[in-house]
Write a protein that binds this DNA or RNA. Structure first.
Lengths: 346, 346
DNA sequence: CGGACGGCATAGAGCGCTCTCCGGCGGCCG
DNA sequence: CGGCCGCCGGAGAGCGCTCTATGCCGTCCG
């Protein structure tokens, strides 16, 4: 910047009023005479004034900023830190989270600061960041169930909202999906199509969402007479889906239906099936989970259980926002219903 | 927070020194008697003190925050805004940018705030955000060549660094790839393998990177006697790659080599080739561009021109950092060399 | 032995804003 | 016609920090 930026003082002088009046006009507080309001507005645009956020934050104790934290578990080595960011962001899921969060924040002139908390130091940094008032609260998306960050945040009395229920109870709000119902939806659809030799590829069972999806799926299968469903655990990646399907196919060559705990794995599964000469869905029906972009990219397009991620993320932002403004004081949970999206694969 | 957070004053009282001394210890400025330093450090941990960033920013005029802006061109409709974020973040490229940026920022306790600038208002918001001192500068990744944001930023005298050279000259630093050399590398490799009937799928020619890749490719082909190379313009997506290849295959069924201007399109191309019974690389060799995660996910894994995105993003962050600290005053450009990564596809 | 100098800590002046008090002024009611 | 109340704008006190100017010693040199 060439010369010093104009301050409230300058605008006040230009408009011939006091600082307080200009401040009132800017913040739309109390009744200010419309004529004076106009004068002030004119002075603002004439001086090219922009309020200094630091000064404002100092007194309001608000930054209009929230930390959007992607949190992993245990101690990742230093070299893997960058890989963590790349890996997380490569997942289309995260883009949808950001999209939903931004959708809520933007109209309110709030902004998300991106943080990764995959190490002890990084988690410490998140807490410090909030404690020093750099952000008003945190939106936490954990990649592991036993993520220690939520407890840290709750312990420090910092406003935070989680995506997915934490494994150990923590006094924080969260949004989640009725994963169990999602599993049920998948089972009902496969059975409804007439599939009889059904197998499943679950997500990592350390993740509670994986457990729930599986539980809902198995319960429904059991209730319909299928006591045992062959299972291989996957890692939510295309590769792990391929590996799992290869394994399942070896033991159950007559399979006619697959439930994958996410779309990426379903994509890998379809690929393996095609390579082994099985037609999808004619020979084998495949149901995914998430309705991520992978579901559409897949050939054939996936029938999948839709998780309304954007809506969930927006709700997360709203909960945090309310908590920051003091409108909401009690930890709250919002559970979203999954929805079956029928496409070509099943 | 339960009670009022401790301030410098409190720590000073606890340690029996003045505010200024505590401040010096925290910021590691000048020589402070080691004994007193220890006393102060003790008082800090005893009080659980965390410096207030707003107060600090008010006087230092630094926020230790940079805006990471993904900028589109023209006027996108309101409903498409969310889609913009989702679409951008779905591209693995962006994850690598974030990773590189964070790699530089994190050790310096700096943080990126995510912004999208796909509409006039959103661009205005970015400028305002910087003008009010909410961030110290901007890192801009444009999705279109004629993005107006760089000019806006430069006009306002705000510190900013771009990914890729802007189409119209702007007084801002940028990092870029020697795209032309990348095109050359691809041509040389295909010719070196003995390919003779080579076609290419370019990116959108409105993007200068696409033009450059194509120019480097064509120049090299021409120099080696191939005056004419069949071309179809794609859109950097898997689908557009598939469409382009379908078209090219119809007119040139005897094709034995393809250069795709990015990996996503190369992936689509491989898929079409496989569906049409062509073996890759035996019948048709395919070279991609970027070395994104798609290159590895592709079957067969892609031979591709590596763009060191993480390094470039880190350099971007470094340039901005230097500019903010006043170490660097002149707009600077850093051009990275591409590198051929040979895998199975060619 | 006096003065100068350098190392360390302190005092205090802001940074630019919000917000609580106040005071002034006009209108309305008694 | 006077007093009171309500509406609006101004004055000024901070918010918590950094940093310059200053002061206090102790040491060293002339």
């Amino acid at each position: 910047m060439s010369r010093q930026a104009p301050t409230l003082e300058d605008v006040a002088r230009e408009a011939g009023v006091s600082r307080a009046t200009v401040s009132r006009v800017i913040n739309g507080v109390r009744n200010v005479d419309p004529a004076i309001q106009e004068t002030v507005r004119l002075a603002i645009s004439r001086t090219g004034y922009a309020p200094n956020q630091a000064a404002r934050s100092l007194v309001t104790r608000r930054t209009e900023t929230v930390a959007l934290v992607v949190s992993g578990a245990g101690g990742v080595s230093d070299e893997e830190q960058n890989a963590f960011a790349t890996r997380v962001l490569a997942d289309p899921f995260f883009g949808r989270v950001v999209s939903g969060v931004v959708g809520h924040l933007r109209p309110r002139s709030m902004h998300p600061v991106l943080m990764f908390a995959e190490t002890v130091e990084a988690r410490e940094a998140v807490v410090t960041y909030l404690r020093q008032g750099s952000a008003d609260g945190a939106l936490v998306v954990s990649t592991h169930a036993d993520d220690p960050l939520p407890a840290l945040l709750a312990g420090a009395g910092l406003p935070a909202v989680l995506f997915a229920r934490p494994s150990r109870p923590v006094a924080l709000s969260y949004v989640d999906l009725a994963h169990r119902d999602g599993g049920r939806l998948a089972a009902e659809h496969l059975l409804g199509r007439g599939c009889r030799r059904i197998v499943t590829v679950s997500g990592p069972l350390a993740v509670s969402a994986s457990q729930e999806r599986l539980a809902g799926f198995r319960d429904t299968m059991a209730r319909r007479g299928h006591a045992y469903v062959p299972l291989v655990q996957g890692g939510f990646t295309v590769d792990s889906g391929m590996a799992a399907m290869t394994e399942l196919l070896a033991e159950h060559p007559d399979v006619d239906g697959v439930f994958a705990a996410n779309d990426l794995m379903a994509q890998g599964i379809c690929q393996v099936l095609r390579e082994r000469g099985r037609r999808v869905p004619d020979d084998v029906a495949v149901v995914g989970f998430d309705d991520s972009s992978a579901a559409l990219a897949c050939r054939p397009p996936l029938t999948t259980v839709r998780q309304p991620v954007e809506d969930m993320a927006a709700a997360m932002a709203r909960l945090l926002d309310e908590q920051i403004r003091g409108v909401r004081t009690e930890p709250t949970s919002i559970i979203f219903d999954p929805e079956l999206v029928v496409r070509a694969s099943a």
